[in-house]
Design a protein around this nucleic acid. Structure first.
Lengths: 245, 245
DNA sequence: GAGTGGTCTAGACCACGGG
DNA sequence: CCGTGGTCTAGACCACTCT
């Protein structure tokens, strides 16, 4: 029994022992962000437990954001999260860069659409009003961390689609249209990444994530951007600093 | 076969079929918040799959916040989350009540301590300064949804421990000490509930959660409260409304 | 004491990634 | 192609809850 009891405790729970053992190797610096873990079958042999038990321990670490998987490639140590302040309007590109990380953006699609009743209500426009819908995938250090769907009022930013959205939309709106944001309404909720989002982020459906919705208004109270973001749960930390109302 | 079709049928993946079947029963209103699901062995028989496969499907729904488990009792349909605006300083009790839910608070411990170097730094006091540390568990409709550790500067709220913390600390600080909060610094991150938090919330270690840290300052910029909260991930939705700086 | 979920075993085949 | 994780089976015993 418990032949070479690894590290932390007389748990008796094998999957938690595995969890602790790997967590210890990471905090000790033996395994660094980006490093690949031994394969499940390798760990199974080393520890003398069933593969299901190994996976149970790995799932724990995944839920903690300590490791992540690349489908059918292996398990890797997670890099640290980026800090995101949704009350600021500096875009993704600048705050990721400011944290010493390498941001990248990829446009999945960009279309002109007519407002459906829901979007019409959000934008306080009649149904059928012209809007732009942009879908993007964004990366930190080469890892896809979020997918977003942006909606912009075509009346405020006519002919927006002639620009490339692989850079900052923030600066396009500012320099090309003179639009700045005065107010943000942000809400967020832990979620599971499924369907389109899971596929776009190349994660297994059901992985925990963070769903974030942002409405940005200019000084006149006009809706500028309506944004839905789905983040990998291990890639972001939210920070907000505010005056109390 | 790209699979963002939510159709429960042709998946081939048994655990996703189970997921879809139960999700459908919930959205149809066949199963309502608080209802208990059939036992795992019952589902196993009904669907003719192995128990591990049943559990896989249940874990998906759990990650989505759709269902939750009570240890060794069964699986239940999750109630809707409460909305939390960390920029407001109305306490837990009032905003939960305002949403038509029943809040409750239970004090786990309340102690006077001397500031360790870390807390001394946070409070800008010399190490050893007197502080109060309060641990509480909070409920919505009878379900434990968060545990918190509050730290208050004893110099601002002398003799605080004579009060009961099973009600609102907010109102104690306001009515008894004339303290109001002018600024909040909040940060939050998806996490796994483990150890003390998992035990206090009576969830299995490793369940996803939301870790939230709040620093509250009064108009003079003095630290009033330093708070760490650990929420069940399915119990809360964060909403923030701010002017852009 | 009966029923529930929690843990674990020892296999198996499949689908996809990457050399 | 081989190695990887992804899915699945069919059992087992334990720890706890509930009544």
């Amino acid at each position: 029994m418990a032949s070479n009891a690894p590290a932390s405790r007389s748990d008796g729970l094998h999957y938690l022992s595995l969890r602790d053992a790997i967590a210890a190797r990471i905090t000790a610096g033996d395994l660094k962000p980006g490093d690949k873990l031994p394969s499940e079958r390798r760990l199974q042999e080393d520890l003398g437990v069933a593969r299901g038990t190994v996976r149970e321990g790995l799932f724990q670490l995944e839920a903690e954001g300590v490791i992540y998987r690349r489908d059918r490639s292996g398990w890797y140590v997670s890099p640290p999260p980026v800090v995101y302040d949704p009350t600021r309007w500096e875009g993704f590109m600048s705050y990721v860069e400011a944290q010493g990380r390498i941001p990248a953006t990829e446009t999945i699609s960009a279309n002109a659409v007519a407002a459906d009743p829901l979007l019409a209500d959000v934008f306080s426009r009649p149904p059928g009003s012209p809007l732009y819908v942009i879908r993007r995938r964004r990366y930190v250090d080469g890892r896809a961390v979020l997918v977003e769907r942006l909606v912009v009022d075509a009346a405020l930013a006519p002919d927006l689609l002639r620009f490339s959205f692989d850079q900052s939309l923030t600066s396009i709106l500012k320099t090309e249209y003179g639009i700045t944001v005065a107010r943000n309404q942000v809400s967020m909720q832990p979620c599971a990444l499924t369907g389109f989002e899971a596929e776009a982020l190349r994660v297994k459906s059901g992985l925990p994530g963070l769903a974030l919705q942002r409405r940005s208004y200019d000084a006149q109270g006009r809706m500028v951007e309506y944004d839905h973001e789905h983040w990998r749960h291990d890639a972001v930390r939210i920070s907000v600093d505010t005056r109390v109302r």
